[in-house]
Amino acid sequence: MVVEKLSNCIDLHRELKALGVDGGGVSILEDKAHFHLIRIRDLHVGAANILKQDALSIGADLAVPRGTVTASIPRVDALLIATERQLQQLVKKEKAQPFGLKALSVELESFCHLKHDEDASIMGILNANDDSFYHASRFQGSKAIERIETMIVEGADMIDLGGVSSRPGSIAVSAEEELSRVAPIIDALYEQKFYEKTALSLDSYEPLVIHYALERGFRIVNDITGLANDEVARLCGSYGATAVIMHMQGNPVNMQENPSYSSLIGDVELFFRERIAKAESFGIKDIILDCGIGFGKRLDDNLSLITHQSHFLRLGKKLLVGASRKSMINAISPSMSDDRLAGTLAIHLKAIEEGATIVRVHDVKEHAQAIKIWKAMRG
């Protein structure tokens, strides 16, 4: 007899099939190995007691604070622990319950049947400005085209071109100045038909610059203001472009001046829901969501958004994370050098594990290799 402890991160479906388990059994057993952890805030104590009993009746559980059973406090926070099948059963039970549990069932239902695509895409970064925070991402003229060609060979699925720095404290430039920086690169990419080789993205929120790029083969608009400008939304809709909606508190000048949230995950989700509705009202069909690591966030906020990426999967959109070489890495692990590649890889692999499907990176080759190795280890 040989006994082996297996990782919880293996491809369980493949393992069960290899054992010869029948189709129905694979589905049942696979479900038991994966569970939801769902935090519920400000729950009526009566609802908490009902939910606790209903959860226990189907084999799930609800962690509640001391004093909940005696209703010594009117409202409580709780943590639901349930498999996918148990969550579906619980949703049905709560639809007929009082104390706000019917509304809660709708929220819980949105976490059922979530699909996590682990085939992550790489967005390579190229800056046409001289003040981007990472100097090695700055290229102009023929060097920019060479760099883009290199990133495509290294494994980039899309290229994100920007002409204005959005680092904390940076000052915006005029749309005309921004266009003068990126237009030569856009023209060269168009002339050489790079739009047939890769997906081209423009990191901008200026309608003048966006219109110029969309006329010349660009199909993605990466807007750090999250479609705040109606004209940007109109352009994306009329050209059938993909819109990357990023969350930012404040603006690059003041965003890191004591940022705070009443409920981080909830606040970011509410922003996403509002901007998704706006995007769809302008006819935008393809939307990507970016929680905006480092844009009006404290270190703990950044870590929470990366760790809990899966929460946003219920919005039904692809998720992008861009933490490449950002200062949060040094905040966690101070270093005498500015080399933040190892920290970047750790963050992005965790983001992919939690549901991100696109990582925006400076180091394409290293990310392509890391993702390939990570996937191989997961089976």
Rank of each mutant, 00 (worst) to 15 (best):
S238G: 06
N254G: 02
P252F: 03
D160Y: 08
I148P: 03
Y190E: 06
N251W: 15
G226E: 02
F218Y: 06
T225L: 13
A199N: 13
A156M: 14
Y190W: 12
D230E: 15
G162E: 10
V253K: 14
E196V: 07
F218S: 02
V153G: 10
H211R: 11
T225D: 07
Q192A: 05
A172G: 11
E215A: 06
G226R: 03
M151K: 12
I220W: 05
N229R: 12
E149S: 14
S204K: 10
T242P: 00
R181T: 13
D187Y: 03
A233G: 14
E191W: 00
K197A: 09
S166E: 08
Y205Q: 07
T242N: 03
Y205P: 02
Q192I: 03
E176L: 14
E154H: 10
T225Y: 10
Q192P: 04
M248H: 04
Y205C: 13
E177H: 11
A233W: 15
A188L: 01
E178C: 03
R216K: 07
A188I: 02
L189V: 00
V253H: 05
V232C: 09
E176Q: 11
V253Y: 05
I245T: 07
G169N: 11
L189E: 01
L161A: 03
Q249W: 07
E149F: 11
V253I: 12
V164A: 12
I186W: 00
A213I: 02
N229F: 07
P168E: 09
G250A: 10
V253A: 15
E149D: 15
A213W: 04
N222M: 11
E206P: 03
I148R: 06
I152N: 05
R167P: 08
A199Y: 10
G237D: 06
A188Q: 04
F218E: 02
G217V: 01
L179V: 12
A233L: 15
I148L: 08
E196M: 09
I186L: 03
N222Q: 07
L161V: 08
G163H: 08
L161M: 08
A243P: 05
Q192C: 03
Y190P: 01
F194M: 10
D160C: 11
R167I: 08
R181K: 14
L189H: 00
S201T: 13
E177Y: 10
G240Q: 09
E215R: 04
A156Y: 12
S204L: 08
L189I: 02
N222K: 05
